[in-house]
Design a protein around this nucleic acid. Sequence first.
DNA 1: AATGAATGAGATTTCATTCAT
DNA 2: CATGAATGAAATCTCATTCAT
Lengths: 212, 212, 212, 212
Amino acid sequence: MAEQFKTRQRFQERRQRRIERRRNEILTAAARVFAERGYSNTTTREIADAADIAEGTLYNYFAGKRDILLAIARETEAPMEAAVLEAGKLEDRTAMIVMFEKAFDIFETRLPFMRTVLTEAWMDDGILKEFLVVRLRRISQALQAFIAKRVASGAFRPIDPTTGARLAMGMFAGLITPSLRGVEPLPSREQRRALAETIVDILLNGISVQVT
Amino acid sequence: MAEQFKTRQRFQERRQRRIERRRNEILTAAARVFAERGYSNTTTREIADAADIAEGTLYNYFAGKRDILLAIARETEAPMEAAVLEAGKLEDRTAMIVMFEKAFDIFETRLPFMRTVLTEAWMDDGILKEFLVVRLRRISQALQAFIAKRVASGAFRPIDPTTGARLAMGMFAGLITPSLRGVEPLPSREQRRALAETIVDILLNGISVQVT
Amino acid sequence: MAEQFKTRQRFQERRQRRIERRRNEILTAAARVFAERGYSNTTTREIADAADIAEGTLYNYFAGKRDILLAIARETEAPMEAAVLEAGKLEDRTAMIVMFEKAFDIFETRLPFMRTVLTEAWMDDGILKEFLVVRLRRISQALQAFIAKRVASGAFRPIDPTTGARLAMGMFAGLITPSLRGVEPLPSREQRRALAETIVDILLNGISVQVT
Amino acid sequence: MAEQFKTRQRFQERRQRRIERRRNEILTAAARVFAERGYSNTTTREIADAADIAEGTLYNYFAGKRDILLAIARETEAPMEAAVLEAGKLEDRTAMIVMFEKAFDIFETRLPFMRTVLTEAWMDDGILKEFLVVRLRRISQALQAFIAKRVASGAFRPIDPTTGARLAMGMFAGLITPSLRGVEPLPSREQRRALAETIVDILLNGISVQVT
DNA sequence: AATGAATGAGATTTCATTCAT
DNA sequence: CATGAATGAAATCTCATTCAT
């Protein structure tokens, strides 16, 4: 009896894992086509083809097309949380570099997911608010706090912290966009490190040679 | 005879103007809904309603839905050319500020048009290439030349000009995006001037207080 | 007063003639495009363009698109009546030849009109019944009477008159169809005469050399 | 394993047959409505209703409305080839009769298909050239060769072979048209045989009693 | 679970007709 | 009378979703 139960349990677990695996296959395939053609322009047929399953099978794993989009968005939550956490304790210049590096890393591992979410957030208020605003705001606040503190201590010139945070995030956007849009390959790990350093370096010291 | 001809001519001109006016009304209405809901998610019915005309009437002015999108994109060409021209002769810091200010101004006058084009360029390679790439490249090249020249003369630290240009354009993106996305009102003329100055100031000198 | 009346009358007549002329211009243009593309596939815009007038003007002369088709059909009534009359008194071989020649002539003068009517009669029961059946039946009956009489007198072999009439009309169709379909120019006057003679000759005597 | 494979294979085959059957059902229904109202005047809604399926289902089997027309036209190719083959070896009078009989038979089995193709060929150059001209020309050439040979041998009077072929085909047209147009039922098998004989008899010997 | 044919609501587009100028 | 822009009904086609197998 106990044996039988264990067997059944193991069977259930394996089933769960199989379901989970299949779900992820679908999400990966869907993210790829969404990233290429956009959510609205992608048909469930295309998703099914990309995932190499029948259209009807999609509905065994997701409630509908939009649910797939939301699942993709949800997949970006965990990695983005990493950068947010990093941003939470922005103690020094190094921490800032690490945060940007983490941010670059997210795109390395989840490019189609990120592209899909960022693209849709551009038009879909639901996606924007639920999956982006919260995290971006937390990053922004961390940056603002970092700036405000140093402005107060006299280490930074008296810049508006909000503007400063936006400039920092914009610099990151300026570097990631070509890869995100697919017109350029992603930077390598070393390049990402260097880019993160450049962002922080320029943000703090500017391009000009400082006259001493 | 001459009178009659003149009358007819004036009649034709007025008609031309009326047609032109109506076309622009439709474009403005369409840009508004496209900006809000995206091109794909907008129906011709919605465009017609927004323009307060019948659906069929759209086709008296445009060949189809996509033609409306292209016309909107074309409307952004002239203003963007202004910024490009400004960028062409980036002689000094002031010229750079003026360029960014011009760039801000474009969004002031044509926000829904710009938002529509930028959003669609995000997924539509045709729009991207025909209406954005050329101009962005010219701006980027002007920035790169500006940077490269000063790096050579020793005025700038040895930064990669491409990266530098992207950082500059990213900073602009960081400041305009909230307005573009519609989560924040557009900055006033004075604010735009100040933001342009901030971009250039931070880009050149950074946030840190320079220790002399 | 009388003068004025006369003037007014003349004016009215001229107006009537002008209207009549314009109507015919429209019909000719419409028949041309109908013949080429078919009634259903022709737009009122195309008719108007072909007639070099505005779309709206059509409705000053005709009640609607279908009314133009009916007017075209009506235009074929008079010429077809000629052949019917000829057929009515089929006394001898010569009369038969003359009838077929007249039939060929109709197409010479009114090719697009005939093509339009015959094409539409092929699918439109209204056109078929109102403009074709009556006349074809009268021709058929004349042919049948011609045949029946001679069968009775022993001059013709005992053929079914209905079948005979159909064969005769079919022979005519076989010769006119290539021109009607537009894959071949119309035969000249002399050729038409010769073709009419051939029809009657073969119908009566066949192709074979008669062994005496 | 082998069993399972066989089962799957049989399942696939049955599915293929079901799809084929459904396709044919749709074609038959479409040919019926096309024959009655013409291709242009028939809506996809009417086709779907006639086939007792939803409009959207049409597009699971055909690429579009015109594709249905082309499929109908294609269905007439095989049977028409029969008559063409018969015509290829027109050795004697009997062979000619058989050819016309075969031609009549085609309409017996595929009346709406034939009517649709012939009607559309009347206006659609694509249909005309792709599905009619080739075959009609081959029949015509066989008839011409038949005539030319006998004219040379002195068995036939010196008639123009082209005209002769047209007369023969016209005679056939004269007899089939009433059935094709739907104003008369199709002739029975015996009647078709008799009609074919009549065509050849009259074509060769004419109606007149030959004076010996 | 997997399949994919069936569905029908909805999207884009056409076009005969009207009507203000 | 002539014009042609405006109209909206109707046509073709797409596609997310359902469901029988």
